[in-house]
Design a protein around this nucleic acid. Structure first.
Lengths: 115, 115
DNA sequence: AGTTTTGCTATTAAAATTGTAGCATATGAT
DNA sequence: ATCATATGCTACAATTTTAATAGCAAAACT
């Protein structure tokens, strides 16, 4: 799978607008989940596999490679860690967690009652 | 494709933690791109197709259906619009745009020089 | 030395996405 | 009214991704 780099064509943008490259990268299965989990600290390959309950090793390995080439994840003694870029990105992702819990989840209770 | 709802099993969480349901939903091809584009205002199906340079009508339709069932997108006279939830989500997504441009994009210039 | 753990590849199967064609309905012009 | 055009969308085959499972090589542990 093509590594989405800003400035090169990606899904959503032939000119490779950075946001589109980022959305392409993060919009692949498990990509955000991996970043999410790694924020807690370094993890081994197997720990990530357990965390991502149903990811296949093939996909995990591919995804880690992509995230690594995009400077979000790197290797360390304990396995894999977020880079500084990765941590910055997580902090942007984080607010989505509380929004999902406090706002979005509620929408299902309300709206599904109506129908 | 299964509609990821908080509270039900999704990729990444058997108990359906809201954030995991959200990441599952948004981690599907084009989902974030659609939200991103719709923030500018309502769009017709064809406009969305043009914007998402290479999405197939099949996928667009599927994705719109999912986003709709998850209360992020709804129909209107002019086509499709973000719901209030959708706009809230976009505002969380937005900061990623400037981060991608100003920080992340730079990482490629730097790091790729090193190698 | 023998067992376990870890990171990962290989292979095949299943599922998602694309590409293309095209249809039904609505809108607009003649 | 009729003909062309635009729109939203479905059908279906071809590709591409992802999953599932097995298992191997290297390192760590006992």
């Amino acid at each position: 799978m093509i590594i989405p780099k800003p400035g090169l064509p990606v899904r959503g943008s032939k000119t490779g607008q950075p946001i589109m490259a980022l959305l392409d990268l993060l919009g692949r299965s498990w990509a955000m989940g991996i970043v999410w989990h790694l924020y807690k600290g370094p993890s081994t390959f197997r720990e990530l596999q357990d965390y991502c309950e149903s990811i296949s090793p093939t996909t995990l390995n591919t995804r880690l490679g992509e995230l690594n080439k995009c400077h979000l994840v790197e290797r360390c003694l304990e396995g894999y860690v977020l880079t500084e870029y990765g941590r910055e990105l997580f902090e942007l992702l984080e607010p989505m967690g509380s929004w999902a819990r406090h706002r979005w989840a509620k929408s299902f209770e309300e709206n599904d009652r109506k129908k």
